[in-house]
Design a protein around this nucleic acid. Sequence first.
RNA 1: CCAGAGGUUCAGGCGGCCGCGGGGGGAAACUCUCGAGGAAAGUCCGGGCUCCACGGAUUGACGGUGGCGGGUAACGCCCGCCGGGGGUGACCCCAGGGACAGUGCAACAGAAAAGACACCGCCGCCCGGGCCGAUCCCUUCUGGGAGAGGCUGGCGGCAAGGUCGAAAUGGUGCGGCAAGAGCGCACCGCGCUGCUGGCAACAGUGGCGGCAUUGCAAACCCCACCGGGAGCAAGACCGAAUAGGCGCGCGGUGCUGCUGGCAACAGCGGCAGGCCUGAUCCGGCCGACGCGCGCGGGUUGGUUGCUUGAGGUGCGCGGCAACGCGCAUCCCAGAUGAAUGGUCGCCCAGGGGGUGAAGGCCCCCGGACAGAACCCGGCUUACAGGACCUCUGGCAUG
Length: 145
Amino acid sequence: MASGHPKPGSPGAEERAGAGEKPLAAPEQPAMAISRITARRDFLAANSGTRIPSTAFILLVKPTTLGETRAGFTVSKKVGNAVARNRARRRLREATRIAMPEAAVEGADHIFIARRMDAERPFADLLRDARQALAKAGRKLGVGS
RNA sequence: CCAGAGGUUCAGGCGGCCGCGGGGGGAAACUCUCGAGGAAAGUCCGGGCUCCACGGAUUGACGGUGGCGGGUAACGCCCGCCGGGGGUGACCCCAGGGACAGUGCAACAGAAAAGACACCGCCGCCCGGGCCGAUCCCUUCUGGGAGAGGCUGGCGGCAAGGUCGAAAUGGUGCGGCAAGAGCGCACCGCGCUGCUGGCAACAGUGGCGGCAUUGCAAACCCCACCGGGAGCAAGACCGAAUAGGCGCGCGGUGCUGCUGGCAACAGCGGCAGGCCUGAUCCGGCCGACGCGCGCGGGUUGGUUGCUUGAGGUGCGCGGCAACGCGCAUCCCAGAUGAAUGGUCGCCCAGGGGGUGAAGGCCCCCGGACAGAACCCGGCUUACAGGACCUCUGGCAUG
């Protein structure tokens, strides 16, 4: 919340707003900011996006007009019990935290749907899968648009 | 030392680096701090809390509980005790009220399964019938007759023994008898009853009775006691459009009788309908439709409820115990597409392999069940591997 937003202005200029306006990709920002998808309608909307299957997950990418890059995770009961589902979601989150700033499609929604073998796959492999899937999505959409 | 019984407890540890959620500080950069479980699980009981419903009496239905006493906010939980069963023992198991209120069921096997029976068997009598038949008599022969005895049979008595079964109409012993039998007696068991002990369940004991009284109530049932419904997606607040809606006041419903009126209709009386409970009674309330006044908003999102509580820990006191009381001290997750993760190193347990006489050394694998969702008290189920305490039986030593 209210991340970064370095204000070039003088610190003395007390400006009470700040929270309202969205920072539009400051030029000095090294990587894109990733926010989280939580609303059900956004998940449903992403169903029509580009679909990239991988070993431990399925990636859905859907460009939006919001101007921000977002990620969401879907872990159904097919994955296992509550412990297995938590673990799958956390590992996916960690992998995307590392991989997305460098490889995500800017301004698009990314949905990761966990598969059953998610929890067993070594983390290094999972991370590589995420990078490859994101790169593939970038190529597809780049060609498309 | 071996085998076993009961209980308590842990749930890998430490440290880098990069992250996540809550709270505090700060103008900011940032920083400090807290962050899953014993079952968080199943949602099977009991509560708190919230909203809804709720006039009284009687009765019924449905669900639950079931030895006694205690603990508790409460319980179907816990503790202690009683009774029954199992074990050498420590200990363990038991829905453990009622089967002379009624109905029902008791498969198979077996002679017989509920007020019953006689298959084998035991005993007595009958010798009448059938079969076999040593031997003897008659007859030329065929054949006929007598006939001890055996087998089979008939009538009656019996239920001890055998057989079947989950269960067989009390058990053991002695007497008794043709053989037997509670037929008689003693003890045990059972029923009724008195006394003593105990708050009680119940125990002990005296008298009487005779074998009466099969089992199943986790079959219906009977008895006693208990029980409103829904759940934090409860509920509250904030903000926007349309429609339905809701409350109050006034007039006011249907059928029918009489009276008045040409009629519309009016007056008086009786009956009816719906709701308040499944039923009955008492009691209460409502009204088709019209007019007037007032209120308010399904859903989605946000905020709240939301974590300080029948709370944890320590000490003391009371109690056999469950537990209670007092004092001190601590604050210990609050997410909501849902935080507690990723990775690396060392150590600790575990498994496998290699080497060695062995202590050991090296390598590989690798960490049970499982994730808070309003909060407590229980129950049940899942669980790698440990640690500790108490007790029992046996062996050895002293």
